[in-house]
Amino acid sequence: MITLSENTLQEIERAASKYVDRKSALMAALWAAQAEFGQLSPDVIEAVAEVIGVSSAHAQGLATYHSLYWKKPVGKYVVMLCTNIACTLMGAETLLEHLEKKLGIHEGETTPDGMFTLQEVECIGSCGNAPAMVINETFYYDLTAEKIDGILSGLR
């Protein structure tokens, strides 16, 4: 089994101290572990479950539910393009094709240089500025193919 770093453990304890029942800190704990390992592989999940005091299955259930927990390794930048209704009406599907061509990967994949992972996501709450996407924790609005090209080259 993997051991979590002192830092991560502290982070988890800080989160746990906010709740009456430490099990409530499971999400925060997974998040902290993901920050350390870049992903939530089964052994990371197991280690978190042990620290929080829930079964590994329970922790895995939560990890697989939320799309922001990576169950496999991702690139440095995770491009999450919304393809829910408003964005699709505003042309998100063409943008997805554009991104796939531009990065040379399919949705759900990571570029060989480990820079970008492309992911389709549901509504990110920016319908007013559709189409929209999130890269890591930054939002980008009113997208066009050209705008995307600019954003990506800015990150390279």
């Binding site: 089964p42 197991e46 079964s55 299955a57 895995q60 697989t64």
Partner: peptide, 19 residues
């Protein structure tokens, strides 16, 4: 015993044990 959990979500959800 908490052996099972609902893995994944939406139409892909399954009831499974750890891995």
């Amino acid at each position: 015993d908490w052996v099972l959990s609902d893995m994944n979500r939406g139409s892909r959800v399954t009831m499974e044990s750890f891995c």
